[in-house]
């Protein structure tokens, strides 16, 4: 009876373990084999082992580093902007949201849309002849910039990412802000602290762990961005908006160089891991 009892936990975790093995471990093992092989769609079932050649090719590929740099710039710019804007809105709208909680549901709407759909929507919105933005710019200024040319594409893409995902930052940061007891603020106010002092010395320090977590979430999401960038500009004029995900996708599907693409994704994974560990340590130190 005791032995049978001891088996129960193992039996209970078996389905989940099998599921994870099938969906994560097996593809990872195949990826590891592909990363050290010459493999195309024609030779998916018969990859030829070539050692670390794919990793060397990726590291020597200027396009890989260019794409990585673009993704990093994009992720930092977008996540910092979302964080600052989300924090401002969380504090600024807090009294209103306390009185009208359902307003939060309305504010969440942008992030409920599929990113690819948002990309398509902005392709229309920014189009010189059918878009709302250029229409009013022409009407009132007689001119409209090229939102998606090589000079402006980065700014436009970051702005669209910020517009779609700031609600996510707002949601988390508002929850943290609302979770701070009013007694603490009242005590500070009685001691003569003004609104800015309360924000700086009470709210922000208490919200710091949440701020760090929010930044992580948004950074990870923006770092691996694919859909809306791909729909809006593709890889951009001369490859100027190639994110690391687009780079890997193109190597895999378009160049049919599967070993190279998988090696690139593994290097990307390792680098992301390092960046995240660095950021986590930084966050912990400050928290």
């Amino acid at each position: 009876m005791e032995i049978a009892d001891r088996r129960i936990p193992y039996l209970l975790v078996t389905p989940l373990t099998a599921f994870l093995l099938a969906l994560l471990a097996v593809p990872l093992a195949i990826d590891l084999v592909y990363s050290v092989s010459r493999v195309t769609f024609e030779t998916l079932r018969a990859p030829r082992l070539i050692g670390l050649g794919n990793f060397v090719a990726v590291i020597q590929d200027a396009g890989f580093w260019q794409a990585l740099w673009f993704s990093l710039k994009f992720a930092v710019a977008a996540s910092v902007a979302q964080l600052v804007l989300g924090l401002f809105l969380a504090v600024f709208l807090a009294p209103l949201l306390k009185k009208v909680p359902w307003l939060m549901a309305l504010l969440m709407l942008p992030m409920m849309l599929a990113p690819a759909l948002v990309g398509l929507m902005y392709r229309l919105v920014l189009h010189e002849f059918v878009g709302v933005v250029p229409y009013y710019l022409y009407l009132y200024t007689g001119d409209s910039p090229a939102f998606l040319d090589a000079a402006n594409a980065f700014r436009t893409l970051v702005t669209i990412e910020v517009l779609q995902w700031t609600p996510f930052a707002l949601l988390i940061l508002y929850s943290a802000y609302a979770g701070i007891s009013d007694d603490v603020r009242e005590a500070a106010a009685i001691d003569g602290a003004g609104a800015l002092k309360i924000l700086r010395h009470i709210d922000l320090p208490l919200m710091l762990p949440t701020i760090v977590i929010t930044f992580f979430f948004r950074f990870i999401d923006s770092f691996r961005v694919f859909d809306n960038v791909y729909v809006l500009t593709g890889s951009g004029a001369g490859g100027s908006t190639t994110t690391i995900s687009i780079f890997i996708y193109e190597a895999f599907f378009r160049r049919n160089d599967i070993g190279f693409a998988v090696a690139a994704s593994l290097i990307f994974l390792a680098l992301s891991f390092l960046v995240l560990i660095g950021l986590l340590r930084l966050g912990r130190r400050h928290a």
């Binding site: 392709r123 920014l126 010189e128 002849f129 059918v130 910039p145 090229a146 998606l148 040319d149 594409a153």
Partner: peptide, 18 residues
């Protein structure tokens, strides 16, 4: 158009159609 570097079939039709 200034945004021609992001134009393909649909954008071209829209521009001509305008």
């Amino acid at each position: 158009p200034k945004d021609s570097l992001s134009y393909e079939f649909a954008e071209t039709n829209a521009a001509l159609g305008s």
